[in-house]
Design a protein around this nucleic acid. Structure first.
Lengths: 349, 349
DNA sequence: ACCGGCGGTGTTAGCGATAACGTACGCCCT
DNA sequence: AGGGCGTACGTTATCGCTAACACCGCCGGT
């Protein structure tokens, strides 16, 4: 019944094998496998049967070289353990799933050198487009992106000079808005807790926007505390303890991300602090995790899924239509969610 | 000074452009760019200068086709939002970074159909090896993996029939061991809370091992509660509330993962329950997050990083040395960490 | 002086697929 | 009957790179 199906072969299968097995030319097999061009139903099924029997998997390497087309989109992000990026990725996947395009992910660990290397590797596969986190890249990286001659979408952040298209939120504005609200609610002695990473430009921009708004109100950050590595939740606890030890009179803590914010929240609740009366808290990101906490931490949504979707849509459009305009810019508005850790004295009655 | 560097070109750059710019043959350029074969220092630097000036990025598609070598390792996992898999990935990356190999990730969302599709796509790029989560695959998937003629490492789980090599822990044993300890500590009315996913075979195996150990002690799970989707932490709360409403007399809750376990823990602490006296809790995975919680949840480590590393090492070895033995099997031992939510009455005084 | 060997470079022939064009055949219409 | 046309295929020529070998000085040993 069987055939030479599972036989251990030395030479890998090619179109030729399928063509011989089904008695038609390689070209016809190629047409069948790609659903392109006219093939009669009879030969189509004959070919498909042969291909399946042999267990043939087309060689996209050869296909891509011949057709000068690669249905890959390079997606370059700093980290996978941040929870932010997997969400962006699923936004991208959702959109690309409806197209022939496929995302390929590269991770830079927030290192410009690695970014450059990863980018080089990815571009050497001649992807049809690039989605890359951030607007800050090394000169060689920018040069490569420009020279690649493919659509490039920089995501997450819009505060800077894009290479081509850009989709994101203004982190500077997000920090500004949060500080404004904090001040409006009457908090005055404000501490900041964040990552040590000088290369997390988005966290930096949030902080800059934050201090700018404080300055406008004649305030400045009373004290700061930084961390790197380790369990963010635990670090949030430790940093909160440390900063309050130095300044027990702080009445607000602004965390650069929700995870350390959550750690701080748990710590303060255990201490029986009055939140948000005695002390207010806020983070950034709107992570799903927060929903299960004893109190909802004040935060701002980073629009992760939307950013992913929008970026993928730009890429898809640009690839489908060569003449589409480059340089598109989409700015999402980060929504504030005050939760239970920020006073809510309404401005208007 | 400049040159025709950033000129907007129609025809993409090829080796030929570099070879013309530097006055040597394409072959020599190829040798320089790959650091292979003897090239004099003079021509080497000449070529490198020209390549850099042009902004040339080699075309791996053509290279791979010509050399019949692709330094990609397909990594196929069910999900990125599970935290487990990013850790496995970093284990893999760490090891592969020391080799010419590069991981390429595909995500299946726990769907066998998607797994099959993703696998097909990846194999069509002719990777040098495959690392794939789980031992359960559709027949066509197994056939493809076998027919690919490349090293295959199935990871996470060792309870089943591997295709080639396998690296993981026994989830059945992990469930068994946890149940044994729970019983040994005197708990008797035990509830189970887990995911609804019938396709998470590892969670299922843990549960099977768990009930088997209970059966041995003449016990069975008193009640169960399942969820799917949404914030795991929140679901953990809700499920805990639900199951205790039905059975207020439960004295132990076994969660199929740490995240819902953490939700349950927070819920019970708020209720002022005596943990682990009145009720004990345990999860599975050993996620970093737990370190920041008010109490340390009892859990078992899934050896994620080690699994990633070991799998990558097998792949690297097999690719470096064609004659290396296939079918290797590495079983890690999942370590129990009783934390603060499981009584600790030692067996021996 | 001759030869072998070696470092350095060029030549030739694919790798496995697809684009573009070519051809055979049947069918309808005049 | 013959022209015109559309369908269903086959042929040929790349795509950009590398393996394998050929080549060519130049060196030192005998």
């Amino acid at each position: 019944m069987a055939g030479k199906t599972a036989k251990l072969r030395k030479r890998p299968l090619t179109l030729r094998d399928v063509s011989e097995a089904s008695g038609v030319s390689e070209m016809t097999v190629s047409r069948v496998l790609r659903n392109r061009g006219d093939v009669s139903e009879a030969t189509r099924s004959k070919v498909l049967k042969a291909a399946k029997a042999l267990g043939y998997v087309p060689n996209k390497i050869a296909g891509a070289l011949a057709s000068q087309r690669v249905n890959l989109v390079a997606v370059i992000i700093p980290s996978l353990s941040n929870m932010v990026f997997p969400e962006v990725l699923s936004g991208i996947s959702e959109v690309l799933d409806e197209t022939p395009l496929q995302p390929v992910v590269g991770v830079t660990n927030y290192s410009p050198e690695r970014e450059e290397k990863v980018l080089y590797e990815m571009l050497s596969w001649r992807p049809s487009g690039v989605i890359i986190a951030g607007l800050e890249h090394s000169d060689p990286s920018r040069a490569m992106l420009r020279a690649a001659g493919i659509p490039v979408v920089e995501i997450m952040d819009v505060d800077g000079e894009p290479i081509d298209a850009v989709v994101g939120i203004s982190h500077r504005a997000a920090g500004y808005e949060m500080a404004t609200e904090i001040v409006r609610q009457g908090y005055r002695r404000i501490g900041f807790l964040g990552t040590k990473m000088p290369l997390d430009h988005r966290a930096r921009k949030r902080f800059e926007g934050f201090t700018e708004a404080l300055a406008r109100a004649g305030l400045e950050v009373v004290d700061q505390e930084f961390y790197s590595g380790g369990s963010a939740l635990l670090k949030g606890r430790e940093m909160t303890e440390a900063i309050l030890k130095r300044h027990p009179d702080l009445d607000f803590l602004y965390y650069s991300n929700d995870m350390i914010g959550a750690g701080g929240l748990l710590y303060l609740l255990e201490r029986g602090m009055d939140i948000p009366g005695q002390i207010g808290l806020a983070g950034f990101n709107g992570v799903e995790l927060l929903e299960g906490l004893p109190r909802r931490l004040a935060t701002m949504d980073a629009c992760r899924m939307e950013i992913g979707r929008a970026a993928a849509e730009i890429i898809a459009r640009r690839i489908a239509d060569e003449s589409a305009e480059p340089g598109e810019k989409i700015v999402f508005r980060s929504r504030m969610s005050p939760g239970d850790t920020l006073l809510r004295r309404d401005a208007k009655p």
